[in-house]
Structures are given as structure tokens and as C-alpha cells.
Design a protein around this nucleic acid. Sequence first.
DNA 1: TCAATCCTGACAACATAAGTAGGGTTTGCC
DNA 2: GGCAAACCCTACTTATGTTGTCAGGATTGA
Lengths: 147, 147
Amino acid sequence: MRLTAKSEYGLLALIDLAVAWNGGPVSTRDIARNRDIPPAFLEQLLATLRREGLVIAVRGARGGFVLARDPHSISALDIVEALEGPLAPTVCAAQAICGREGTCAAEPVWARVSASLRNVLGEFDLASLAERQALFDAAFTVPTPEE
Amino acid sequence: MRLTAKSEYGLLALIDLAVAWNGGPVSTRDIARNRDIPPAFLEQLLATLRREGLVIAVRGARGGFVLARDPHSISALDIVEALEGPLAPTVCAAQAICGREGTCAAEPVWARVSASLRNVLGEFDLASLAERQALFDAAFTVPTPEE
DNA sequence: TCAATCCTGACAACATAAGTAGGGTTTGCC
DNA sequence: GGCAAACCCTACTTATGTTGTCAGGATTGA
């Protein structure tokens, strides 16, 4: 079982945007460099996230992307669902194909997997992830007091 | 996010074997018919499950498959892992590729997703699933007291 | 004006999923 | 002994999804 690289890249990118929250827009190029993501691919992902209403694009020179709303109100689930579509662990969890809807003992298994997955992803919000990331970044950045 | 048809078919097949626990072996053909699974494909899955030690094959006429141990001791997690390999939601959950191991805020997200998934799947055992399935089956089978 | 930046659609290489095909081997039963 | 039922094994196929790349267009700050 796996989520695709889209989710992984998308979450990283939006953590970076959350870190820069209240600052100016961040360009795909900067994020791609920072996170080692193929730039053109990341651009596509951010375009999707814009269409899904999670980020706002600022075009032109010195442009980039900004979170569309407060980082507290964006969860990992929002990002994953925006990039991967609805989260169903199996075909059968989405639609009964065996003609046994309601009479198949396997049904609750997939239902509970799906619910638990959504639940866990929903618990992570960008604000806390960004906070944690900022701590990590600070620990590995030499302070430059002369600036 | 999704598990593949293998998990879905495999779980259904092993529920059928659990229902027939203490009876004789059940053939792939019977299971395939009962669950509407392509027979040749199911055969491959059962061969995998045999190699993984979950079922025992009985060759020759009147042969088939039997659970290798008590249905109480086989979980949905056992089946899914046997058929799909180790359960990692993203590439990064399996191996850090960005060179930020321990300093990436996204890491705990995938870790918790993985843990929760394993946890939920581990909660379902074949004995209870078979019990439930037997109830469903009984409800849709006309009793034949004259036999 | 120019360069930085996002926007869009097409395309390609590769991997995986889902099944098919065809033979080989074992074994219960008449 | 013969035969059919069943598992065993490997290879092949077809379709789809993933992970990008590429080329050009539109927008805008300096």
C-alpha cells in the first residue's frame, strides 16, 4: 500500500509555505531546490493545489505561491485528497462490485481502514508541522547576528 | 491511496477457507465461483499465501486449500502483508531519500499513517470475519430440513 | 523592456496491476 | 491403470498509473 510521490512532495511544499506564512510568496524554484523535487513536476502539483483552493498563485516576477488560508486550518488530509483524489483503500470500499453489498464480511475491514486513514491524516495541521520544521531548520542553520 | 485487488481477493478467499475450517479443503475453482474472482488469478494469490505459510495446499483430485492455522490467529494484516509486501504509505516512510532523516517534519505523518493502518488491519481476525460471513450466508440460504 | 514567474497541454519512459495462457505434477477414484 | 481433478510454475499481455520532461504562452515587478 502506498501513497504516491505527489502526496509526499505536496506535503513538503506546503510545509515550506506554512513556514513562510505572513511573509511573501515562495516560488516553485525555491521549494524545489530546498526539497530536492523536480521543478516542473512540482509546478504541476502546485497548480492542482491552487485549483483545489489550498494555495494562491502570485504571477509575475517575485511571484510564487502562498497558502490560501491559515495553516491551522489545512490538514495533511486536505493535501493528500487534493492530490490523489478520494481516499479509498480498495475498489470495493468505493463501490460494491461483487454484488454482496451489506452481506460481505470484508466490507467493514476496508471501511475501518479508510476511516482510520482519514482520521490520522486529519490530525496533522500545517501550523504544527511548520513549527516543527522551523525548529529543525533553526538547529541546522548557523545564526548570522551581523545581518 | 489504495490497496490492490490482491488484498481484496485474498481476504475474501481466506474468509471462505475460515468458514470451511474443520471441513475438507476448498478448491480455487469453488472460491472463484463463489466470489466471482478470475480463477487463474486467484490460483496465483493462493500460491503466494501458501509460500507465506498462511494456507496449506492439498494436491490431486478432491484437493484444494486449507488454512495453515487456527482462524483466530490469522489477521487481515497477515493477508495483506503477505500479498502486497511491507506496508509503507510512501517512499519516504520506507527510506529517507531527501537526506533529511530525523529533520523532516513530514516524517511522523507517514509513520503514524503506517502504524495506524497496521493497527486497524491487525484487529480483524479470520475467525470473527468468518462468523459474520456465516451469518450473512445463512440469512440468504433457504434451510433444507429434509436433508 | 526584460527577466522571473506561473499556466497549460502534450508527450514519453517506466513500473505496476490484473489477468491470460499453457504446460507440468500430483493424487483420489473407478 | 487410466483419467480427471486439482495444484504448480513461468512467461506473456494488456491496460493503467506514475513520474516526470518539454515547449510555448501569459502575467507582472523592476
